[in-house]
Structures are given as structure tokens and as C-alpha cells.
Amino acid sequence: MRTLTAIVLLLLPGAAGAQAVQSGPWDVTSTAVSLDIPGAPAFLLRMMKGKSKSERKCVSPVQAVDGVAALLAPDPKAQCHVDSQQIAGGLYHQALTCPQKQGPPIRITRSGTYDAAGFTGRLDMGGQTPKGAMSIVLDQKAVHAAGTCRG
């Protein structure tokens, strides 16, 4: 379950292309819609449902040219592979495969809408854990934030 949680946390900020976005800091907020994780305590899953987590993502001027794709890029630490990605006409769809320490890879799909101001969409994650099939659904939204990037 720790590996699964790590993948979820690493994907939360990630998330996108020819329409450039503004460089600088972006806040990507993920809200848990549904969680079905075998072996996780039911009270914990109930507590997590509806909760949001925001992550700050820094987009460089070079990355900003890639548009929303820069915001959808998965965190390299998750070691996810982008299987397919379509970004056009204000809509995006992305399919990823992310490794687990035990078991087959986790499959993730993201889809939604975007413009120069950010994106709004849904992330569906599914896979097999040692304790059974799991499913997680998150709503995600990215907006440009005030301030500057550190480091």
C-alpha cells in the first residue's frame, strides 16, 4: 500500500499542446472522488474522500512553450510511462503506466479540458495490489499562482 500511496502522491502534481501557458508557479489541486483500496482501513478511505491536496509545480519558460503538456507531465520520481497523449482543441486525454514494487503496473487515464489558464479534469487509476483490485478517482485542477519559483 505504501507504493500505491507514493504513486498517487507523485502523480498529483503532475498533470497536459501547442497553446503556451504562463511560466512560473502553478497550483495543481487533486480532490479524492472515490477510493477503493483493498487492505486500507475503511475509516481512512472515508476520511480521504472529498479531501483535496495541492501541489506547487514550477514551469520554466522553455516548458511553458509546451502548453498544458508541461502541467500534465508526470513526476519523474514516479517512473511512469506515457502510453498515449492527445492534446488539441481544448481537450486532453492521457494514458500512463506506472510500476509498482509488487505486482503489475498501475494504469492511469486523465482527461479533461484546458486553456492558457490551466486545466480541469479527472484522473482514473486502477490496478492490482497484493490484496486485490484497487481503483482511485481524483478530480484535478491547475491554476497559475502568484509569486516566483524557488531554486
Score class of each variant (00 low, 15 high):
residue 4 L to R: 00
residue 6 A to V: 03
residue 7 I to H: 00
residue 8 V to M: 01
residue 8 V to T: 01
residue 8 V to P: 00
residue 9 L to P: 00
residue 10 L to D: 14
residue 17 G to M: 07
residue 17 G to E: 11
residue 17 G to W: 08
residue 20 A to D: 06
residue 20 A to N: 06
residue 22 Q to F: 03
residue 22 Q to D: 09
residue 23 S to Y: 04
residue 24 G to W: 07
residue 29 T to A: 12
residue 29 T to C: 10
residue 29 T to V: 14
residue 30 S to R: 03
residue 30 S to N: 13
residue 30 S to L: 05
residue 31 T to Q: 08
residue 33 V to Q: 12
residue 33 V to N: 08
residue 36 D to S: 08
residue 37 I to C: 01
residue 38 P to C: 08
residue 39 G to I: 00
residue 46 R to G: 07
residue 46 R to N: 11
residue 50 G to Y: 05
residue 51 K to I: 00
residue 53 K to Q: 13
residue 56 R to H: 08
residue 57 K to A: 14
residue 60 S to K: 14
residue 60 S to L: 11
residue 61 P to N: 14
residue 61 P to F: 14
residue 67 G to E: 04
residue 69 A to H: 01
residue 71 L to F: 04
residue 80 C to L: 05
residue 84 S to C: 10
residue 86 Q to W: 07
residue 86 Q to G: 13
residue 86 Q to L: 13
residue 89 G to M: 11
residue 89 G to N: 15
residue 90 G to W: 12
residue 90 G to V: 14
residue 91 L to K: 15
residue 92 Y to A: 12
residue 93 H to M: 04
residue 94 Q to N: 04
residue 94 Q to L: 06
residue 98 C to P: 04
residue 100 Q to D: 02
residue 102 Q to Y: 01
residue 103 G to T: 04
residue 105 P to T: 02
residue 105 P to E: 05
residue 105 P to Y: 03
residue 105 P to C: 05
residue 106 I to H: 00
residue 109 T to M: 09
residue 109 T to Y: 07
residue 110 R to S: 13
residue 112 G to V: 09
residue 113 T to Q: 10
residue 114 Y to W: 12
residue 115 D to Y: 09
residue 115 D to F: 10
residue 116 A to E: 13
residue 117 A to L: 11
residue 119 F to S: 12
residue 120 T to A: 15
residue 123 L to M: 13
residue 123 L to F: 01
residue 125 M to V: 11
residue 127 G to Y: 01
residue 127 G to N: 04
residue 129 T to P: 01
residue 129 T to Q: 03
residue 129 T to V: 10
residue 130 P to C: 08
residue 131 K to P: 01
residue 133 A to P: 06
residue 138 L to D: 01
residue 138 L to F: 06
residue 139 D to T: 11
residue 140 Q to C: 07
residue 143 V to I: 12
residue 144 H to W: 09
residue 147 G to P: 04
residue 147 G to W: 05
residue 148 T to G: 11
residue 148 T to R: 12
residue 149 C to Y: 05
residue 149 C to I: 04
residue 150 R to I: 02
residue 151 G to H: 13
